[in-house]
Design a protein around this nucleic acid. Structure first.
Lengths: 132, 132
DNA sequence: ATAAGGGTTCCAGCCGCTGGAAGCTCAAGT
DNA sequence: ACTTGAGCTTCCAGCGGCTGGAACCCTTAT
């Protein structure tokens, strides 16, 4: 099948698929006319990458996961190690964002939001703390 | 003061400060020898940007906030609008990551993580659901 | 005199795409 | 048979937000 069809079936834009081929993540056969030719198994791999990316794995991590996916003899422990590390990264990211949310939410709460130039958000950002 | 001192006092690397000047976010005076020369007020602005960036505002948003910061007559409503939108973005990001966390956590939980090639994480990523 | 530790400029690269130009091929309609 | 339009190919450039490195200048201490 052509790249457009593979794109529709995998949920990845054609541009992205070509890019993945460019960086050696996934290869594709070529038809006689020079068009890329994708098998169902290729589409499986594309979907695999699509899901992995959308779960927050980097392209390099996808490369690892893909080789584990392709290697029928890999130990599940290898995969688990990658996924567990990713989980920890996500937890850190959530904690960081929650901290931000709290600080920013606090600033917004204390801003009366009218036409007066007095603004706790600006003051907070500028580091000049006020007495609340 | 020189860029290195301004960097230390603002918490931004010199490279980043030069970059900000490059994109017209902040300007600096020049000393006779061609070195950038920062006033205390400049450092305030640098810190302001540093804080805003670390709170998740984009450089473009920092540009807006900075002009509101500099403009003593601005309405606090303008600032509040930007901050509130940012808050919503952060909430969306947290929700998204929480979803990821749940899905990935689920996969990791069900992976026995031993030497067997059978791996629910890989299966989950490949979209072939099993009956767990 | 010289060496270290600033500063300056500019150019290139990181990630993960994405847009656009120029040209080819294919399928359908007239 | 010819045209049109969609889809394919390649390559080059740019996004955001820095960051590293090269090559050079300036200042200060020994």
């Amino acid at each position: 099948m052509n790249i457009g069809t593979a794109a529709r079936q995998s949920g990845l834009p054609p541009k992205t698929i070509r890019y993945y081929e460019d960086i050696g993540l996934l290869t594709a056969d070529r038809a006689a006319n020079g068009y890329r030719d994708y098998s169902n198994e290729d589409v499986h791999r594309l979907r695999f990458v699509q899901r992995s990316r959308s779960l927050g794995f980097s392209v390099e991590e996808c490369r690892q996961l893909l080789s584990l996916y392709t290697d029928r003899d890999r130990a599940s422990a290898d995969v688990k190690a990658i996924a567990t590390e990713k989980l920890a990264q996500i937890d850190r990211k959530i904690a960081e964002l929650t901290g931000l949310r709290e600080m920013l939410g606090h600033l917004v709460e204390h801003c009366h939001g009218d036409a007066r130039p007095d603004c706790p958000i600006i003051d907070g950002l500028s580091g000049r703390s006020r007495d609340h």
